[in-house]
Computed example of a mutant assay.
Amino acid sequence: MKKLGLALAVALLSSSAALAEVSVQSCNRTVTFDGVPQRAISNDSNLTEMMLALELQDNMAGYTGISGWKTLDEELTDQVAVLPELAPKYPSKEVLIGADADFFFAGWNYGMKVGGPVTPETLAPFGIKVYELTESCIHIGEKPKVSMDDMYNDLLNLGRIFDVEERAEALVQAYREDLAQFKAGLKAADTPLRVFVYDGGEDSPFTAGRYGMPTALIEAAGGTNVTDTLDKSWVRVNWEAVVETNPEVIVIINYGEVTAAQKREFMLNNPAFADMDAVKNDRFVTLEYAEATPGPRNIKAIKKLATAFWGN
């Protein structure tokens, strides 16, 4: 009888161990976890907000890459107050190792650079596993055009990694239903509005291509991104090409030292842009950085855009 009890216990332990092992797709890699991360670090405001939306504070050692450029949503400030910011901009490998991290949620150009010192390969020898932001995967290979599924995918994968699948699935389902209901009542014209995303830069503007999240947000709101023909996520272009597209609305991304108001004034007062429909009609709408990048504020951003586009 004792042998039977021991065998049953071993079988249950083996089953538990098997269930604890989880594999997720991260860009072009399959990452396997044999336990829930306990010392996770997120980089950037939108990625940190994803972690907070899933209530993962107790599994986090801190975050990086926010105060050097931008701020968190006021609603989430209290939640993150219990966590230290380990680096104001991109973290070094030493910062992550020094924090005894076992997980890094980042992306390409969201805390990591291709060929840089902090990558999944350079962190692996230190036991730090990396999950990459789906939108950013275009920097290291091919992927489908950006869509809301990029953000949903990240939340669902984080749910699996941290063993909060039901929480993640419920959150994503709520987002899907909210967006579907909103789009069902959206009163938009048959022809999508031409929209230009102005992130910053005066000599040459930084904008979003077909793989940048604003493209998905604009399309959901009934517009079309005039630079979605560019096979990039975020990219510099020349003003001449922008003027040729004659955007009807300009979406300004608000973060950094140059304010959204200053960016708007630059465009309104530059004679080179005087014939743009958006400038002539003073049609500008501002998105905060964390609204324009993949994260919990994307549905709110779509509604804000639709209001600016159509008065919905």
Rank of each mutant, 00 (worst) to 15 (best):
Q38E: 13
P205R: 05
D199C: 03
P91C: 04
G62S: 10
S42G: 10
K280V: 07
D34I: 07
K303N: 12
F126R: 02
L52F: 06
L13A: 11
N157V: 03
E240W: 05
T64M: 06
Y211N: 05
N28Y: 13
E202G: 02
W239H: 05
N157D: 13
S15N: 02
A221Q: 07
K143N: 05
F103L: 04
K187D: 15
L305R: 01
F105N: 00
L4R: 11
F33G: 01
L56Q: 02
G107T: 05
G98E: 10
T134P: 01
T227H: 00
D102I: 11
L230H: 12
E244R: 12
Q262T: 06
A180V: 02
Y131H: 14
T30F: 09
Q181P: 00
I302G: 00
I97N: 01
C27K: 03
R176F: 09
E169A: 15
V279T: 00
V130Q: 08
T134S: 07
I41S: 07
P125I: 12
V24D: 00
F103Q: 01
E49K: 06
R160Y: 04
G311Y: 01
V118S: 09
P120Y: 11
W234Y: 12
P120L: 11
F196L: 06
K300E: 15
T307D: 15
D78T: 14
E132L: 15
T224Q: 08
W310C: 04
F273S: 05
E177G: 02
T191W: 08
Y198P: 02
A11R: 00
L56C: 07
Y198M: 00
T32Y: 02
K3V: 12
E21K: 12
A184L: 12
A81N: 12
M267E: 05
L72V: 10
T119Y: 08
N153A: 13
V172K: 11
A241C: 01
A180Q: 15
S15H: 10
T207E: 11
A261E: 15
L123W: 12
D163C: 03
V237W: 04
T229P: 00
S233Q: 09
L12W: 13
I250N: 08
P125V: 03
A292P: 10
D58P: 14
D58H: 14
T224K: 14
L133H: 02
A87H: 09
V258L: 09
L86T: 08
A290C: 05
K304V: 07
A189M: 08
W69V: 11
N270C: 10
Y63P: 02
I140C: 03
A53G: 01
M112R: 06
L230M: 13
V197H: 03
P271L: 10
E135T: 11
S147G: 14
S15F: 12
E288D: 14
A274G: 08
L72G: 06
T122K: 02
N270K: 14
F266P: 04
A7I: 15
A17W: 11
A53Q: 02
T307E: 14
W310E: 06
G35K: 13
R29H: 08
R236P: 13
M148H: 11
G201V: 10
L155V: 12
A53T: 14
V82I: 13
L179Q: 11
G107Q: 08
V243T: 09
E55I: 03
L52D: 03
E240Y: 05
A261R: 05
L4T: 12
A290P: 01
L19P: 01
G200V: 09
S23N: 09
I218H: 04
D178H: 13
R176V: 15
G159F: 00
